[in-house]
Amino acid sequence: MPLIGWAGYNALTRDEPAGSAATADTRAESAGEVARGDTTTGSFELAQAARDAVHACATRLAAGDAYVQSAGVGIGHWNEHVQARTDMLNGVIAQEDMKAIWKRTRLAGPEDVNQANAALEAYEALPACDGLATIEDPPETVVAQITACQERETATTAAVAAATTGMQGWSGHLNAMAAHADGEMTAQAAQDLWVAAWEAAPGYIGVFNDARDLLAAAPACE
Rank of each mutant, 00 (worst) to 15 (best):
A84Q: 02
N90Q: 14
V82L: 01
A47Q: 09
N114D: 14
I135R: 02
G72E: 03
E80N: 13
Q115E: 14
E140H: 07
V73H: 12
Q150E: 14
V68N: 05
L132D: 06
L126N: 07
Q69Y: 09
A47K: 05
R152Y: 05
A148S: 13
L107P: 00
H55I: 10
V142I: 15
V54P: 04
L12I: 02
A47W: 07
V34N: 09
V142W: 04
A71R: 03
R152Q: 13
E121N: 12
G64C: 05
A84E: 02
Q83S: 12
S30K: 09
A133I: 03
E96T: 14
I146E: 06
E151T: 14
V143N: 02
A50S: 12
D65S: 11
E29F: 11
Q150H: 03
N117P: 01
G91N: 06
D97P: 00
G64D: 05
E45H: 08
N79Y: 09
A100E: 13
D137G: 01
A66E: 11
A94H: 09
A118S: 13
A49T: 09
E136F: 08
A94N: 07
A108R: 10
L89H: 07
W102D: 10
G5V: 04
R106P: 00
G32R: 12
I146N: 05
Q150C: 01
A7K: 11
D52G: 00
D87G: 01
V68K: 01
T141G: 07
P110H: 05
D65N: 11
R36G: 02
V92A: 12
A108P: 05
W102I: 08
E151K: 15
T41V: 15
A122W: 04
